[in-house]
Design a protein around this nucleic acid. Structure first.
Length: 493
RNA sequence: GCGGGAAUAGCUCAGCGGUAGAGCGCCAGCCUUCCAAGCUGGGGGUCGCGGGUUCGAAUCCCGUUUCCCGCUCCA
């Protein structure tokens, strides 16, 4: 499938809109429409349920986006979260200035005659004190002066824009967890290992955003900081390494549980040169997006870097008292950090299918029922029959408190089904003449309705009185195939 | 930020100096007893934005914004 087809569907069906579109759009930010916000909330709810509520060793947190500016000094983001870039004027290649310093370079020194020198990596010219000026790739082009990109958005706390009030929109939710480590520890009486989870917006002034909602400047993270005692071992392995491996496997399984096929997921270990300034080891969970394998979630061993830094900058002790060893330790932390928007995109890409049904193209989102924005659509077969419409609307009202249920009567039944297919509604409930009886013939209604399965397009016929119970079983995961034999469809065609 | 491509109806696109179009979708009506059927009617476009050339610009020129593909970066 192509990203274009998905962008188009997302807009047409109210999943994702470009931000500020009526003003010509604004770069690298997107809005989630009425159906998009449902999917996104579903992703966050499931992540929270599976990673916080179902585990005895996890608690949640919701820290503010604006924090004390020193947080970002301590975290290293003020100093390290920058990429000095230089461009070659001739071949137009772009380089990170710090990478250029890793190779020796040829230099034509203006301060000396007979002036070609080889200068060692990372050193300026001994004679003129210049750094590399020529492109390492094409060898001819002159390089621009390095330009600094700090990827953090600056802002000001309070009405006066002065340096004293300068702070940043957080570039990751993680720091909100680290600075609350001791608060949470005291309030919740926790024992290592334990984790703190948080979902929230983060902001990065990316040099190159793009690929739809894959890389945006405002995005939402689902982060866990899982604290372990580095002195402990599990199965003979240091605790941090054991839990790192565990989280990699758990998180991989989570994506699969909600519909991502194993062949479209992989773990990719970071090389030493690409590790972040805080990381001992990092592995990415990558998904096979339309534009290629790209990161869905990073799982890093941040060691004791963050707690140590914050202890140093704040002067507060951020340690854990090890009762067995009778000593204070600084916990190590394993960080599974996922992008909500990236998960959204991956689930959508994975679910999108174009199928051929009776010679017609059918677009269907085969979303996991828990992710689907709408759970049930109640449809009248004939909108001219008052009794059918009344019954259908009553059924919608009956189901709505339990599942997000919509009613639609604005087209023929086939079209209504296809509309629901396009947004991935797992089940449609149809009310027909047989349900309510036919006043013309005097035939009595059977008070049964049809449930139609999105993926197989098969139907079963269920008494209205059992509808809620049957839906309960379907959404609890009971398979269509096991349920269907008990509720044969209408004998009429 | 650099190079390349693009921007016309909700979507996909045609039109390339002379009155803004098609298909699909959407809305209303008729018809219709379960998978985008048919018929009739309807709403909807500052042709991304700004400037220029011209009697006349969606069309040619300049600028700009946004999107897509690369370089680079990350969740």
């Amino acid at each position: 499938m192509s990203m274009e087809a998905l962008v188009s569907l997302a807009k047409r069906r109210g999943l994702v809109f470009q931000s500020s579109e009526i003003y010509g759009g604004t770069g690298s930010v997107w809005d989630f429409g009425p159906l998009g916000v449902e999917v996104k909330n579903n992703i966050k709810r499931l992540w929270w349920r599976d990673n916080v509520h179902l585990r005895p060793d996890m608690v949640g947190l919701d820290a503010s986006i604006l924090m004390h500016p020193t947080v970002w000094k301590a975290s290293g983001h003020v100093d390290h979260f920058t990429d000095p870039m230089v461009d070659c004027r001739a071949c137009k290649r772009r380089f990170r200035a710090d990478h250029l310093d890793t190779v020796p370079w040829a230099h034509y020194c203006p301060a000396k005659a007979n002036n070609k020198f080889e200068v060692p990596a990372g050193e300026p010219c001994k004679h003129c004190d210049n750094r590399r000026t020529l492109c390492p790739e094409c060898g001819k082009g002159e390089l621009t002066a390095p330009r600094q990109f700090n990827l953090m958005f600056k802002t000001f706390m309070g009405p006066v824009e002065e340096d004293a009030s300068l702070t940043y929109l957080r570039p990751e939710t993680a720091q909100g967890i680290f600075v609350n480590f001791d608060n949470v520890l005291q309030a919740m009486r926790l024992r290592l290992p334990f984790g703190i989870a948080q979902i929230g917006k983060s902001f990065r002034n990316e040099i190159t955003p793009g690929n739809f909602i894959f890389r945006t400047r405002e995005f939402e993270q689902m982060e866990i900081e899982y604290f372990v005692n580095p002195k402990d071992t599990v199965n003979g392995v240091p605790a941090d390494e054991y839990w790192h491996e565990r989280w990699m496997q758990d998180r991989l399984a989570w994506y699969q549980r909600y519909g991502i096929r194993a062949e479209n997921l992989r773990l990719r270990e970071h090389g030493k040169d690409e590790l972040s300034h805080y990381s001992k080891r990092t592995a990415d969970i990558e998904y096979r997006f339309p534009m290629g394998w790209s990161e869905l979630e990073g799982i890093a061993n941040r060691t004791d870097f963050d707690l140590t830094q914050h202890a140093r900058f704040s002067g507060k002790s951020l340690t854990y008292f090890d009762e067995e060893r009778k000593e204070h330790v600084v916990p190590y932390v394993i960080e599974p950090s996922g992008g909500v928007d990236r998960a959204f995109l991956a689930f959508l890409v994975e679910a999108y299918r174009e199928e051929e049904v009776r010679g017609e193209k059918r677009v269907v989102l085969r979303l996991h029922p828990e992710l689907a924005p709408l759970k049930i659509a109640v449809l009248p077969l004939l909108k001219k029959r008052e009794k059918i419409v009344e019954t259908a609307q009553a059924i919608r009202a009956q189901l709505a408190p339990r599942w997000l249920t919509v009613y639609d009567d604005t087209a023929s039944i086939g079209r209504l089904y296809r509309r629901q297919d396009e947004v991935g509604t797992p089940y449609c409930v149809t009310v027909d003449v047989q349900t309510v009886g036919d006043p013309e013939t005097g035939e009595a209604g059977d008070q049964r309705v049809t449930i139609r399965d999105r993926d197989s397009m098969e139907q079963i016929r269920v008494p209205i009185g059992e509808l809620t119970a049957v839906c309960e079983r379907l959404f609890a995961g009971e398979s269509w195939a096991s349920l269907a034999p008990r509720y044969p469809p209408s004998l009429k065609p």
